[in-house]
Write a protein that binds this DNA or RNA. Sequence first.
DNA 1: AATTCGGGGCA
DNA 2: TGCCCAGAATT
Length: 372
Amino acid sequence: MPVSSSSPSRRQKGPVGQPWFTPTLLHWHAHHNQRSMPWKGEKDPYKIWLSEIILQQTRVEQGLAYYLRFVEAYPTIADLASADDEAVFKLWEGLGYYSRCRNLLAAARQVMQQFEGRFPNNYNDILSLKGVGPYTAAAIASFGFGLPHAVVDGNVIRVLARFYGIDEPFDTTTGKQRFTQEADAHLAQDAPATYNQAIMDFGATVCKPAAPLCGTCPMQSQCVAFKQQRVESLPVKSKKLIKRDRYFYYFLFRVGKQILVRQRQAKDIWQDLYEFPLVEEPQPVERSETEWLQLAQQLAPQVKHIAAMHGPYRQLLTHQTIYASFIECPLPSAKAVPAGQWVNAETLRQLAFPKLLRDYLTSSSAAQTNLF
DNA sequence: AATTCGGGGCA
DNA sequence: TGCCCAGAATT
């Protein structure tokens, strides 16, 4: 390597944008982009907003069905704003990151009150909506109103990092600034929506995280990462994920056809969703059936026997692995039980549960013991 | 500035 | 398994 060659970290300071990037990307978009999605070309800012919230940290294939169900259930933002929280959470059930759902409702009501039912049409007002950050505001502003704001999402970061060989971590304050600056520098000012759509589709279908299509990539000739064989190692993330294990023991108290449920309120996973009376242990616990019965009786003294036990079932989350076991306890009456509400099977179906619990409820294990 | 918020798909 | 996904809010 020549002495005059600068180190990778020193090479990249200001924007390194070159005029070749955007035209080539737009050409690919116009002639080779095959990606189709129901909200493409959508002009209703409500539907654009809805699709963007659903797609935060969520693959298009996973969010698609949810988007279609939401649009059908709530065709306008007024419909969504006046909906029952419970019904909206039920529609969101299984999608994850449930604060998005809570913020969705808050933002809909914000638009009805603060903006008199008209979706805000400028970047700062859009950004002021609950659950709307820099990415989503730029997406709505450009797709909905043709405003010149460049989106910066995982696709954009990957495309820029590889094309310019940017090895600065993107998950830091300066890293985010760097990629935002780079994205802004490449925005097609006269066609912001087209440009944003192009770079995201390109990142999703060509410049993919794993097994990118470099062999047929129209950007290959100018791509620094390809030239230096660093495609697989870019972009760079600085922080590593720390996971922990949690052990949940759920007690299903049943009186006839009624089951005791409660809503999670703590600032923890699954906030606002429903569950059952829960005992969490710092470590997995081996108990005899007698010991399980004694524990159940501490919660509900009337319990006489354990009808069934299932699990542990495992649920992988980003920062946690949940191991959940279920202890089914028939009761003679609803006296002296933990706080919560008694619901029948029909009501149970209308409540939003974490996927782990919903899977258990719909599994044969639950049905076998006449939970329904 | 660091952490936390789900669930699924892929190599 | 580890990483990523049309990120944002909280601490």
